[in-house]
Design a protein around this nucleic acid. Structure first.
Lengths: 254, 254
DNA sequence: AGGCGTGTTGCGTTATGTGCAACACCCATT
DNA sequence: AATGGGTGTTGCACATAACGCAACACGCCT
């Protein structure tokens, strides 16, 4: 829509791959060096881009700060956090909170396992959408057509033998999940890791977030993990209640 | 420099404060609604901005992903992490890793205290630059003129009675820190919290990051915390060694 | 010294972004 | 139902503001 902004923003993912100098940026954008320079300068002024000592450009600090601030303003997160911590204290495993946004599912909070073996995941990181338990819950609640369209568009990487293999299988799984009101991922992302998840709903019943408990086989078996399901669901319901009870909108004045 | 990009980027911090609708954005930018709309659309296409169900705009998922990716590409962080965890395991307190960038100091990694009382801080959040122990180390290593210029430009908020009160006092403190090769913050940010910190250096001796151990008075006294100094310094030195041995690129100046 | 590879600047051209005004829409209110 | 104020959206004529160029400045290597 806006060519200049479009180009400027295209620089960011490019720099996310690693530092680059002016020439490289200009080339990959397909513009003149002088143009790239002006764009980079503007990005720099806003702190989105940083110039390291060797003159190459990196993503800048403001980016972190922005992501940070945005995250803290998510009200589901704020409400849920204390409950996630409590759940972690009572079961000891890693607890995640995730939301759906624009064809992606991403973690917005995480409480680390107390066991030495930890899962790799990071707040802000997009989730393996076709297999994660939280993703299933979030997608299962999408309107029919949107869900179907998305399912067709996705890739179905076989992380393990138990990964969801196809759109058809995925839609089937989503139907089950929607009906039962909870979801699992039993070794579908990493062979030895299992998760159980439950949905958090807003006042209108729509799923606004999902939470999960994850643990590796070496700590508890899948069956043992499933015994936590009632606790997870109860926690999710508590959060739902608190979330929908509260004033849904925040202050609009500035 | 580039007006359009400048305006577009100005939208982001604005949205970081909370969701806003088209009119609000246009007003605060001082542009016509149609202009704001085009900018927002471009931001949207790049996933930097998300349109929630009530039509208001929020910061988008790509922003998190970018911040995430950028963070993971910081090689100091990658190298340091395991050591930070180990230090945390041996002393139990909160461990931070911070870098300096463009007049700001920010945390890029954190390992939580094992004690129930935890500090408030977050990865990506800018640090209280005039009092934090890690900030002192990072600023102490700046070239003379830059350090002086920055010190003059800063505010010196009195978080507590022990906060650094003025540029002069700050520069004095930085001189001490530079000489001794480590730093503390004894209740300068929050009355009851103390920190000890040590620098991480690149191959050329320049300080590239700083790490600290923090604990509240209720857990250990300042004196007890100081007994950890040798351990902290040793850890920092180990990281320095690994960092400068490894990366063949970077820091070829001087 | 020379030459190459950077990043940087000023400038004329025109594509590009702009504000306007009219339109479409939703929802409260009467 | 009809009205009216509040949104977000579109098309267009105009001139601003972004573009590429070509020349320059600087550091680095031979």
């Amino acid at each position: 829509m806006s060519q200049t902004v479009d180009r400027a923003l295209s620089i960011l993912p490019l720099l996310a791959e690693g530092p680059a100098d002016l020439g490289q940026v200009a080339d990959r954008l397909g513009v003149h060096k002088s143009t790239a320079l002006r764009l980079l300068r503007t990005l720099h002024e806003h702190g989105m881009v940083y110039r390291q000592s060797d003159q190459r450009y990196r993503l800048g600090a403001r980016l972190f700060a922005l992501a940070q601030e945005a995250m803290e303003n998510l009200d589901v997160r704020e409400i849920a956090h204390a409950h996630l911590v409590r759940l972690n204290e009572s079961c000891g495993h890693t607890v995640h909170l995730a939301v759906y946004e624009e064809n992606e599912v991403l973690y917005i909070d995480k409480v680390e396992s107390r066991y030495p073996v930890r899962m790799y995941s990071r707040i802000g990181k997009p989730v393996a959408i076709t297999v994660a338990a939280v993703a299933k819950l979030l997608l299962a609640d999408l309107p029919e057509h949107e869900r179907r369209a998305l399912a067709e568009k996705l890739d179905y990487p076989m992380y393990t033998a138990r990964s969801t293999p196809s759109a058809a299988a995925f839609l089937q799984e989503l139907a089950t999940v929607r009906e039962q009101g909870w979801a699992t991922d039993l070794g579908g992302h990493e062979e030895s890791i299992n998760c159980v998840a439950a949905p958090i709903r807003g006042a209108d019943g729509r799923v606004v977030a999902a939470m999960s408990v994850s643990a590796p086989n070496v700590v508890v078996t899948a069956d043992e993990l499933l015994t936590l399901l009632p606790l997870v669901r109860r926690t999710a319901d508590t959060i739902s209640g608190e979330y929908s009870g509260r004033t849904p909108v925040k202050g609009t004045s500035a």
